[in-house]
Simulated assay, not measured.
Amino acid sequence: MSLPKIDEVRNLSEEELDEQIVATKRLLFDLRFQKGTRRLEKSHQFKHTRHRLAQLMTIERERQLQKASSH
């Protein structure tokens, strides 16, 4: 499984972006919980999920800065 591409994130609307951020944070919480209870089977999911969250938050920040500079 390859890492997610940032181009997929750039095409999301504001609402979809917010939903994806919340869902990814929830998934990361669930993965941490599984790790704590020793039920985590695919440890590489941490890397992919953190990478995805970083992409989502980067695009969110880019849009915030773009709005601020256009005002």
Rank of each mutant, 00 (worst) to 15 (best):
A23I: 05
L27Q: 14
D7T: 03
R39H: 06
P4F: 02
E41W: 08
A68M: 08
V22K: 07
V9G: 03
D7F: 02
R52L: 15
H71R: 07
D18R: 13
D18Y: 09
F46Q: 11
Q45S: 09
A54E: 10
G36C: 06
V22L: 06
R10I: 10
H48N: 13
T24S: 12
H51Y: 15
D30F: 12
R10G: 04
T58M: 01
S2R: 01
L3A: 02
R32T: 00
L17I: 03
T24R: 10
V9C: 03
Q64A: 13
S43C: 05
R39V: 02
Q45N: 08
R32M: 03
E41D: 12
H48E: 15
L53D: 00
H51A: 09
R63T: 07
S2V: 00
G36T: 07
Q45P: 03
L28M: 13
R10L: 11
H48M: 14
L12K: 13
H71C: 02
R50K: 08
P4N: 01
K42T: 15
V9R: 03
D30Q: 14
L27N: 12
H48P: 06
I59P: 00
D18S: 11
R39E: 11
K35P: 06
L17H: 05
E8T: 05
L40M: 07
R63V: 09
D18E: 14
E19H: 01
F46L: 12
H48Q: 15
R61N: 07
K35L: 15
V22Q: 05
E16L: 10
E41G: 13
N11C: 08
S69G: 00
T49V: 03
F33D: 15
L17P: 04
R39A: 07
A68P: 02
R32N: 07
L65V: 02
Q66S: 14
R63N: 09
R32C: 01
M57Y: 00
K42Q: 15
T24D: 08
E41A: 11
D7Q: 04
M1V: 04
D7H: 03
L12E: 09
T49P: 00
E60W: 11
N11W: 06
R52S: 04
E8C: 02
K47M: 02
L53V: 01
G36N: 14
E19T: 00
A23R: 11
T37S: 03
K42N: 15
L56M: 08
L65F: 03
L28Y: 13
R50E: 11
L3V: 01
S2D: 02
T58S: 02
Q45H: 10
S13I: 05
H51M: 07
F33A: 14
L28H: 13
V9D: 02
K25A: 08
H48D: 14
Q64N: 11
F33P: 05
T49K: 01
F46R: 12
E15K: 12
A23C: 04
D30H: 13
L40N: 05
L56Y: 09
R32F: 01
E15D: 12
Q34G: 12
E8F: 05
Q66V: 07
R63W: 12
Q34R: 15
S69D: 00
A23T: 08
R26N: 14
L27P: 05
R26Q: 15
L27M: 13
